[in-house]
Design a protein around this nucleic acid. Structure first.
Lengths: 220, 220
DNA sequence: GACCTTTGTTGAACGCTGTCCAATAGTCGG
DNA sequence: CCGACTATTGGACAGCGTTCAACAAAGGTC
């Protein structure tokens, strides 16, 4: 009743449901995708706790129970949204020969271009958008960053040391550097894209050359 | 008295409240502090949404309503916890003359020592422990990081450029580098303290010398 | 075309949450 | 010892996420 009232607001599926059929039967995959899209949009707009199952159900034009039928719980639905968005391409694969200066430049440019194209997505993904700095969400984002670290190592031709914990820690730290740098760019506008680019291009090779050897020594 | 002492520590407060006195009247400031301590412990143990007002009230040996009397809402209480913990000293002020190599080493050592002393606090503060990557929580942590950036600039003797947005962005990015590096150390143990120390000591001066001039140019 | 099985979908019911507020009872000054 | 003050209580409330038995749309079968 209240759900129906709210459901009449907007969106094609909703209107269709209200005017033509009281009950719309969809292919499970389609329904799942539809719910996922609506949820992704709402979770992108406002924080986790302020998006209720009722909201999502209303906008999707379905009953609350159906969400639980498909995803089990609100949390699981949210995780699915995060998983889906973390699977979206960010870097893309490099065409040039890996390990060359050109490969590194290409990787950096693609990275920056992806962020430039979807700044809000990047900010959301990076802002640890988790509902409660949650272990599962953190694990997903962590995995994404590890993969990004692999790509970074490959791009600068250091993939032969990808199993070295210290090297991984070092690259992850550099990822933190880049993350903050891009936030300063697209989020706070205290630095422009070209400076971000120059910094990224110059910094990692410099650090690999000058700092990494320092970490290979056993004692100071 | 002793009952209060127990109340601040363990759930014995519940027993004490049930067996001896049905109603314990405290000084508002003490009560506020006690609630804050209990809340800080619980919010540190598990995520925001899994800590209920009832839990906090039970552990503190008080009624749920009293929490709202003191803090207005669960959210406000949480923000207070975050504010309090972000005020805790992390770096400490430097004794040596700022801008020297020794000042930088001292600052780094104090920083590392603080983390080493309370690793869980550092991880909690850094893990964007916010309930929903929330604007207010983010703002508080942001402010803390800006202050830390100021201290960093002072330690390396670059405080005369503290108003330059590009320099600030650069230092903030370095903060991201350090943050990830320390997580790799105390959180994932993929790198040891001494390597973190050497990295921090060597990296920032190197970047200031080699990368910062690059950012001062207007075009590439 | 009518039946029946399958299954996508509903909506009422439940327990728990955060929040409010009138009533209650410790505490202290006179 | 009394009265005023106020810290504290506990029940009421709306809203949340979740469950589940009942319902209805599709598709195969005859």
């Amino acid at each position: 009743m209240l759900a129906w009232g709210a459901a009449t607001r907007e969106h094609e599926a909703v209107n269709a449901a209200e005017t033509t059929a009281r009950r719309v039967r969809m292919d499970p995959d389609e329904r799942r995708d539809q719910i996922l899209r609506v949820a992704a949009r709402l979770f992108g707009d406002r924080p986790y706790s302020e998006v209720s199952i009722s909201d999502i159900a209303a906008e999707a034009g379905i009953a609350r129970g159906l969400l639980h039928h498909y995803f089990g719980s609100k949390r699981e639905l949210y995780l699915e949204v995060v998983r889906a968005s973390s699977r979206e391409p960010l870097g893309g694969d490099t065409a040039a020969v890996l390990g060359t200066e050109q490969a590194w430049a290409t990787a950096v440019d693609r990275f920056l271009q992806a962020i430039d194209h979807h700044p809000e997505r990047w900010l959301a993904a990076v802002n640890v958008g988790g509902p409660e700095s949650d272990d599962e969400v953190a694990a997903i984002l962590d995995e994404t960053r590890e993969i990004l670290a692999d790509h970074t190592l490959a791009a600068i031709g250091l993939d032969d040391r990808a199993d070295d914990p210290v090297v991984r820690a070092f690259i992850r730290a550099w990822g933190g550097f880049v993350q903050e740098l891009t936030i300063e760019w697209v989020g706070r506008a205290r630095i422009d894209r070209d400076r971000v680019r120059r910094t990224m291009l110059a910094t990692l090779p410099l650090l690999v050359e000058r700092i990494l050897p320092l970490l290979d020594e056993h004692d100071a």
